[in-house]
């Protein structure tokens, strides 16, 4: 196994509904992997299985050399996770929240404060660090969640819509940060709806539809797969591969 994240037949069923079906994918160390798919495709379910919040119904995954079912604590130590809507304690300050999360990963207060200060400064939250989280905007919460995910310097970052709700400036900062982390060897696995972000940030992209991986590769590989021209955007490729006619449908609906 040469992947930092490897899923082998990963499957999750909710009663009669199969949210993720027989998923095989490999993400290499230091790679930024974008996980794309329409709403309800199974992206968040996959992510929740990888970080140990959901148990697979079938198959398994190995992260940083540890099986998610056999060695869940070792996997969790290696992973930093940012949820779509990061859960937080409203009446803690940003700094206290980071200390709390750092404590869960075995970091002492001094390290939490030191690394926390760096990350907060990087994401321009230093001034808000002593304020209660209940006063944070959605974007600020997201950035704080990202700080928390990075605090223990994980080998693997699993991010569910990491740029959602961020202003362009912050989004740019986060993109740069992801590149920097990948350059240092951190593996980044993230889901997104924003195709432009995936196109610009990711080394490779996987497209999920109805729980199955229907396409995977670099932009060039995807173009080849879809037999498109070199100018095709990821949006065009995405719609072609997922069989969507979303743009035309919306235009038609608005014309009515």
């Amino acid at each position: 196994m040469d992947g930092m994240i490897e899923t082998m037949g990963l499957t999750r069923r909710f009663g009669a509904v199969t949210a993720v079906s027989n998923l095989h994918l490999t993400v290499h160390p230091g790679e930024i992997y974008g996980f794309l798919g329409p709403n309800g495709a199974g992206k968040t379910t996959t992510i929740r299985m990888l970080v140990g919040l959901l148990r697979p119904s079938g198959g398994t995954a190995v992260i940083a050399g540890h099986d998610i079912q056999q060695k869940p604590l070792a996997v969790k130590r290696a992973v930093g996770y940012l949820a779509q809507s990061p859960p937080m304690y409203e009446r803690l300050t940003g700094r206290e929240f980071l200390r709390f999360v750092g404590g869960l990963y075995g970091l002492d207060d001094a390290i939490c404060d030191e690394r926390g200060a760096e990350l907060l400064a990087l994401l321009e939250l230093t001034e808000k660090a002593e304020q209660l989280i209940e006063g944070y905007s959605g974007g600020m919460r997201h950035k704080l969640g990202l700080c928390a995910a990075l605090l223990h310097r994980p080998q693997v970052l699993v991010l569910d819509e990491p740029l959602a709700g961020l202003d362009p400036y912050s989004a740019r900062r986060v993109k740069d940060l992801l590149h920097e982390l990948a350059g240092q060897g951190t593996t980044v696995f993230f889901s997104t709806h924003t195709l432009e972000i995936a196109e610009r940030v990711c080394d490779r992209v996987g497209i999920l539809q109805q729980g199955s991986l229907i396409a995977e590769g670099t932009m060039a590989e995807l173009r080849q797969m879809a037999q498109s021209t070199a100018e095709s955007t990821l949006e065009e490729l995405f719609l072609q591969l997922t069989g969507g006619t979303a743009v035309a449908d919306v235009a038609e609906m608005l014309d009515k």
Binding site: V51, G52, L104, Y105
Partner: peptide, 14 residues
């Protein structure tokens, strides 16, 4: 804790 339980469920803690 409700959904905040995800914080400690995703962390390496018993």
């Amino acid at each position: 804790d409700g959904g905040r339980a995800a914080l400690w469920r995703a962390a390496p803690i018993s």
